[in-house]
Computed example of a mutant assay.
Amino acid sequence: MIARYNKIVFLIGALLCTNAYANAQTQQTLAFQGAEGYGAYAQGGKAGDIYHVTNLADSGKGTFREAVSVPGRTVVFDVSGVIKIKDKIAVSPNTTISGQTAPGEGIVVYGNGVSFASNTIVRYMRFRGSINMSKGACTVVLDNLNDLIMDHCSIQWGRWDNLHIKGSSNITLQHCIIGEGIDPQRFGALFEDPKNITIHHCLWIDNQSRNPKAKAGIEYINNVVYNYGVNGFVGGHSAADHYQDIINNYFIAGPNSSTKFIGMFTATDHVYHSGNFADLDKDGVLNGRPVVDSDFVSATATLLSKRSNESPAGVKIEDAASAYKSVLANAGASLNRDAVDLRLIGYLKSLGTSGEIFKTEEAAGGQAELNVSKKKSKKSKMKNQNTEAEAR
């Protein structure tokens, strides 16, 4: 009887160990090669169906709106161009959006906002709002969700903020462009109490303020903030405690910039900072000075001697000058940058001499049509299949 009991205990123990190992393996599976930060383990639609976007219409069969309306899909693109949307799009959970599968210049979703849900992977997409949205609208909303990564995306022309994140956790934004917020606020991003947020190697450009406003637990690494207006990186300055790790970023003043590359911190903002630089002379040369404790003390932040946030899938950290070069080369939907992103990168290259905080997207030049094309060749088909395989 004892031997039988011991055998049962052994089998149960073995089963529990096997399940624990399987769960650990699942937790450690990266969204894709190169995924970093807190959102790196999102799995998206890998277990579900593949949906091909075949046209640029706002709704109906073969459209982006239809593609993301059902959870558990990997969305690929057989067409490139501008998808003009009148109403907001709500992306279902457990979704992978593989913008890198589009031919030509890729995809722009233009005209209104897009909201996302838990367990989502988004790569090489452009999301641009419009002055025709409601006054308080943001271009991209990541509220009340878990496990999401946005990689090489361009987010512009939000009316309140370009990007909004509230009450979420395990989020990564990497190699993205967040820029050109438009009237009435012209702000970059508002983070309202999210936890475990990684923002790395992103370009924040031509926003009046909030690059971002970080009421958050955030690791903010290797970003470039260019031509901020009133403020660059903004603290939470609220009654709640927030923990911001600000590491090896480059703050570069442009034509519209004040001297406040950081600001609006209070004692409830607990800041660890290291390796950051600020170039404030607008002389066309990258020659910034180190950011020091007094820059944050003058903003009344509480300074810490060690990091509060460090994601399991850690970010490969560069020095600030190297991060500038990486952002210049790779930020946004950079497989084929379109005219808007090329213009923004041109501003950044000027290192202080060009750039503008616009009131509308039309004042900035508007959204031009992209080079529309469909996949026809065997080579393109093979590329699409390879990307589908990677997404799984």
Results as ranks from 00 to 15, higher is better:
Ala40Pro: 06
Thr63Asn: 03
Lys46Ile: 04
Asn19Cys: 13
Gly39Trp: 08
Tyr21Phe: 10
Tyr38Arg: 10
Asp49Gln: 12
Asn23His: 13
Asn55Glu: 10
Ile50Leu: 04
Gln28His: 13
Thr29Asp: 08
Thr18Met: 15
Asn19Leu: 14
Glu36Met: 14
Ala40Phe: 01
Gln27Tyr: 03
Thr54Tyr: 10
Tyr41Gln: 10
Val53Tyr: 03
Thr18Glu: 05
Ala35Ser: 13
Asn23Met: 15
Thr29Ile: 12
Asp58Gln: 08
Gln33Ala: 14
Thr63Tyr: 00
Asp49Tyr: 01
His52Pro: 00
Tyr41Arg: 13
Leu56Gln: 01
Asp49Phe: 00
Gly44Arg: 15
Thr63His: 00
Gln25Trp: 01
Lys46Asn: 07
Ala20Gly: 10
Gly60Asn: 06
His52Phe: 08
Val53Cys: 12
Thr26Lys: 12
Ile50His: 00
Gly45Thr: 06
His52Met: 05
Gly60Ile: 01
Ala22His: 05
Ala24Ser: 12
His52Tyr: 10
Gly39Glu: 06
Thr54Gly: 04
Gln25Met: 12
Asn23Glu: 14
Ala31Gly: 06
Ala31Cys: 05
Thr63Glu: 02
Tyr41Gly: 03
Gly34Leu: 07
Tyr41Ala: 09
Gly45Asn: 10
Ala35Trp: 02
Gly48Asn: 06
Ala22Thr: 05
Gln25Cys: 04
Tyr38Lys: 11
Leu30Cys: 02
Lys46Gln: 10
Arg65Ile: 00
Gln33Arg: 09
Phe32Thr: 04
Ser59Thr: 05
Asn19Glu: 07
Thr54Asp: 09
Gly62Thr: 03
Asn19Gln: 12
Tyr38Ala: 11
Gly37Lys: 08
Tyr51Arg: 15
Gly45Ala: 11
Phe32Trp: 03
Gln43Cys: 08
Glu36Ser: 14
Thr29Arg: 12
Tyr51Lys: 15
Ala40Gln: 06
Tyr21Gln: 14
Ile50Lys: 01
Ala31Ser: 11
Gln33Ser: 11
Asp58Leu: 02
Arg65Ala: 15
Ala24Thr: 11
Gly60Tyr: 05
Gly44Phe: 06
Gly62Ile: 02
Ala57His: 05
Val53Trp: 03
Tyr21Ser: 15
Gln27Ser: 13
Phe32Ala: 10
Leu56Glu: 01
Asp58Ile: 00
Tyr51Val: 15
Ala35Cys: 08
Thr29Met: 13
Gly60Val: 00
Ile50Gln: 04
Gln43Pro: 01
Ala20Ile: 06
Lys46Met: 10
Ala20Ser: 09
Gly34Met: 04
Tyr51Ser: 07
Arg65Thr: 09
Ala24Leu: 12
Phe64Val: 06
Gln43Leu: 11
His52Cys: 03
Thr29Tyr: 07
Ala22Pro: 00
Gln25Arg: 14
Ala42Phe: 00
Ser59Tyr: 02
